[in-house]
Each structure stands twice: as structure tokens, then as C-alpha cells.
């Protein structure tokens, strides 16, 4: 019994350790002062007004959303196709390709950043949405491949045979049998892809330009100039969007 209480207490402590610093940023965003202090001496939403009134913040939020949306779209389509291909290939090809797909995830971000930066310079893409989308896709794609791959493993191959026997062609089988059955994996992969892109900062710092920069990059730049609560607002906005994406996937996959 005591062991159980001790265990629960430990779990609660660990959870607090993980979550509290994140939640602490929320009250900071509602401070009336011009510096971050916890808890704030006075409350207000003035920094929210600042955030949304300032075009430089608004634009970065839109850039972030645009890059994340494009990254998600490309990753989901390409990643699902890749997972389907992997599921059909032999064990050796599958192991090799899976290792390749996971490469960008295990490579240190800074190495990837330097590599992508030199490629972007050579092609004149530094500071463009295209560069950010390509960079984020290299990171987001593996999550889709993995998620969809796990879902595909759970699909009984005989269902596909049954559909073929009933007269369905490959595309119809994919549309009516495979896709509905792997939908949870696709949605999960999409959320991972979106959050990965939205939250990415290392590659983005290298590839962002004066006009095209994402919200995390803007926060990073801001914090080096002034540690004002507007930074906390930016972080809270990101937190809300991440939570929204996660809840959306839960809702979509419930049924």
C-alpha cells in the first residue's frame, strides 16, 4: 500500500517536472509588465494585442502555418506511398529503406542544417518558403512512413485478396479497403508532421530569410533583443496549436 502511494507520488512529481515549466509560460503571456516575471504582479492582455497588431509577428505565424501545412501535405502523400511500397518489398530492401528514411531523424539537426543550407545556397533557395518546406519534410516524412507502416502491418492481406476477387482494381482496393483501415496511421502521421514542422527551429534559423521566417525563429530572434512577455504569447500560441492538432487527431480517429 505504501509502495503504491510512493509510486503515485513519484509519478505525480515526474509529471509536474515535465509539464510545469511548459504551463508556466501561459501566465507569463498575461503579464501587464514589460518583462517576464512569475507570477506576474499585474494581469493584462496587452501583449496579445501587441502580438497580433505587429505585422512581423502575424506574418511569421502565417508563414509557420503555411510551411507546416505544405510539409504535412507532402509528407502524408509521399510518406503513405513510401509505406505502401515498403510493405510490398522484400525483407532486405525494407530494412535498408527504413534505415534510409529514418536517417534525417537520427542525424544531429545541426549537421542536417549545415548540409541543407549549403544546398539551399547553391540553388538560391535560402530565405524561401520552398527551402523551409523541403527541410521540414525531410524531418516530418519519417514519422508518416513509420506511423502508416505500423497501421499497414495490421491490415489483413486477405482483405485485399477478397476485394480483388470481388472484382476491384488496385486503385479501388486502396481507396475502399486499405485507406480506411490505415486512416488512424495517416492522421497520426499528419499530426506528427504538422507539429514537427511547426516546432522546428534549428533548420529554420539557417534557412529563414529577412522576410520569410517562422514563428519559432521570430521568438528566438526576439528573445535575444528583449525578454518581453510577447515571447510568452508566441510560445502560448504554439502550445495551443500543438494541443489543437493532437486533439483533432484524437477526434478523427475515435469513431
Amino acid at each position: 500500500m505504501t509502495g503504491r502511494i510512493a509510486l503515485n507520488a513519484f509519478v505525480a512529481l515526474a509529471a509536474a517536472f515535465l509539464v510545469l515549466p511548459i504551463l508556466a509560460i501561459v501566465p507569463a503571456a498575461f503579464s501587464a509588465q514589460s518583462f517576464i516575471r512569475l507570477p506576474p504582479d499585474a494581469w493584462s492582455v496587452r501583449w496579445w494585442s501587441t502580438f497580433f497588431a505587429d505585422a512581423s509577428w502575424r506574418v511569421t505565424l502565417l508563414v509557420s502555418l503555411e510551411v507546416a501545412a505544405l510539409t504535412t501535405l507532402i509528407s502524408v502523400v509521399a510518406g503513405t506511398a513510401a509505406a505502401l511500397g515498403l510493405a510490398r518489398s522484400g525483407a532486405r530492401a525494407r530494412a535498408l529503406s527504413t534505415a534510409l528514411f529514418l536517417g534525417p531523424v537520427v542525424t544531429p539537426a545541426i549537421v542536417l542544417a549545415v548540409a541543407l543550407y549549403s544546398m539551399a545556397r547553391a540553388t538560391g533557395l535560402v530565405g524561401t518558403t520552398t527551402a523551409l518546406v523541403i527541410a521540414h519534410t525531410t524531418l516530418a516524412l519519417p514519422f508518416v512512413v513509420l506511423n502508416v507502416g505500423v497501421s499497414l502491418d495490421g491490415v489483413d492481406r486477405r482483405l485485399l485478396l477478397a476485394a480483388a476477387g470481388l472484382g476491384a482494381g488496385d486503385w479501388r482496393i486502396f481507396r475502399t479497403i486499405t485507406l480506411p483501415l490505415i486512416a488512424p496511421g495517416v492522421v497520426g502521421g499528419a499530426v506528427f508532421a504538422f507539429v514537427t514542422s511547426f516546432d522546428e527551429v534549428v533548420l529554420s534559423i539557417f534557412l529563414a530569410g529577412p522576410t520569410v521566417k517562422t514563428l519559432p525563429v521570430r521568438i528566438w530572434e526576439e528573445i535575444r533583443l528583449a525578454y518581453t512577455p510577447v515571447v510568452a504569447v508566441g510560445a502560448t500560441v504554439m502550445l495551443l496549436l500543438a494541443l489543437g492538432a493532437a486533439s483533432a487527431s484524437r477526434l478523427l480517429n475515435r469513431k
Binding site: L159, L161, A162, A164, G165, G167, G169
Partner: peptide, 20 residues
């Protein structure tokens, strides 16, 4: 001839019904 053009009805061992 691919299965889809054979017009045969197959009943599988564990039925292979579409669960969704």
C-alpha cells in the same frame, strides 16, 4: 488472368470480411 477478372466467389477461412 488477374483475380478481379475471374468472376469467382471466394469464402476465406476466417472470412476476411471488411471490418470497416
Amino acid at each position: 488472368l488477374p483475380p478481379r477478372h475471374r468472376n469467382m466467389g471466394m469464402v476465406f477461412q476466417n472470412y476476411a470480411l471488411f471490418p470497416h
